[in-house]
């Protein structure tokens, strides 16, 4: 460990605000992009399944 205690780790010298804001925003953006990709996949599957059911009813 490069830090004496957990409080030290959070403080990051005097730069805790900059370091943790940078990592926080990065995490939000990365997670959002992953969630959107997965949700898009789910939506395509749902739409196609609905279309398929409708086509089968029509037949």
């Amino acid at each position: 460990m490069a830090f004496e205690s957990f409080a030290d780790f959070l403080a990051m010298g005097k730069h805790g605000f900059f370091v943790w804001t940078a990592y926080g925003i990065s995490a939000v953006l990365i997670i959002a992009s992953m969630v959107l990709a997965l949700r898009g996949q789910g939506q395509v599957r749902e739409t196609l399944a609905r279309q398929q059911r409708r086509a089968e009813v029509d037949e």
């Binding site: 990051m12 010298g13 005097k14 730069h15 900059f18 370091v19 940078a22 990592y23």
Partner: peptide, 8 residues
């Protein structure tokens, strides 16, 4: 020089 801010 930068202390811990460089961890970004």
């Amino acid at each position: 020089q930068q202390g811990n801010s460089y961890r970004i």
